[in-house]
Amino acid sequence: MTGEIPAAVAEEQPAPLMRADGVLRAAGLTVALLATVVTAFLELELSALRFGAFAAMLDGDSPYTGSGAPLPIVVPLAIGANLAIAWFAVTTTGRRWAAGPPWALWTLLMLTAAGTRTTEGDYLVGGTNWVALVMILAGSLTFAVYVYRLILAPLSRDSAPLSKDSELSGSV
């Protein structure tokens, strides 16, 4: 015996440990979904910034009253935040599918914002706001590329299904 735990013994976990593991996974996914909502609203707010916003803030006005060219700072922010959220969801849950719910929620929030009219009849994300449109594309593609790379990555040795020979020998 080389100090390895037999497969039958390794699969048995006490019930409190299994429950705690499930609670931690659910908490991880919940935190990832909350972070998705917070960053999505922050990204939507920042998509309207313009280069003249700094001068407007120095004058004591709202940063959204500035003029000039759009400030595309939200595009790298969306890419970084979505990559971090996808990584966090997968890492805390230990499941590859965990990147899906934040991706779906983020995309749903963005598409809802792009298709919602205000009481004045304006869209929240207008068709002329190229920064917001690029942000929606780049943010969703970030999730897509992360999930694609997860699909291409080989399964870890721990999650591989047992073969008939490994069950008989007691090793994984």
Results as ranks from 00 to 15, higher is better:
V172G: 08
Y64S: 01
T128P: 01
W106G: 04
A55D: 15
D122M: 04
V9L: 14
G139E: 03
L109G: 06
I136K: 06
L33P: 04
F41N: 06
E43Y: 07
I136P: 00
T118G: 09
E120R: 12
V90M: 04
P101K: 02
A55N: 11
G66S: 05
L34F: 15
R96K: 09
A160Q: 15
V145D: 00
A7I: 15
G127Y: 11
T142V: 07
A7Y: 12
W97F: 09
T116C: 00
M1A: 10
G66P: 03
L124F: 13
E43K: 02
G94T: 06
A56C: 05
P154R: 15
L44W: 11
T65S: 12
L29M: 10
A26D: 09
W87R: 10
S159M: 10
Y123T: 12
R50C: 04
A48C: 03
G68D: 07
L17T: 05
A32T: 02
G66D: 06
T39N: 12
L155R: 15
T118W: 11
D59K: 10
G28I: 04
A8G: 00
E45L: 13
M135L: 11
V37I: 15
E167W: 09
T36N: 06
A89Y: 02
L29W: 03
M135E: 14
G139A: 03
A26N: 13
P70I: 00
V37K: 02
A35L: 15
F51M: 15
T119P: 05
D59V: 01
L137R: 00
G22M: 11
R157E: 14
T119C: 00
P16L: 11
L162F: 15
L17C: 02
S166Q: 15
P6F: 08
A55E: 15
L71G: 06
T65V: 14
P14T: 09
M135C: 07
M135G: 10
M18Y: 05
T107N: 07
G22P: 02
R117P: 02
A138V: 13
K164M: 10
V125M: 10
V125R: 03
A144I: 10
A78Y: 09
A132G: 03
W106Q: 08
E120W: 14
Y123C: 01
A78L: 08
V90S: 02
G68E: 08
R117T: 12
M110T: 12
G3Q: 06
S166W: 09
V172P: 02
A56D: 10
L168Q: 14
T93C: 06
Y64Q: 06
A84Q: 04
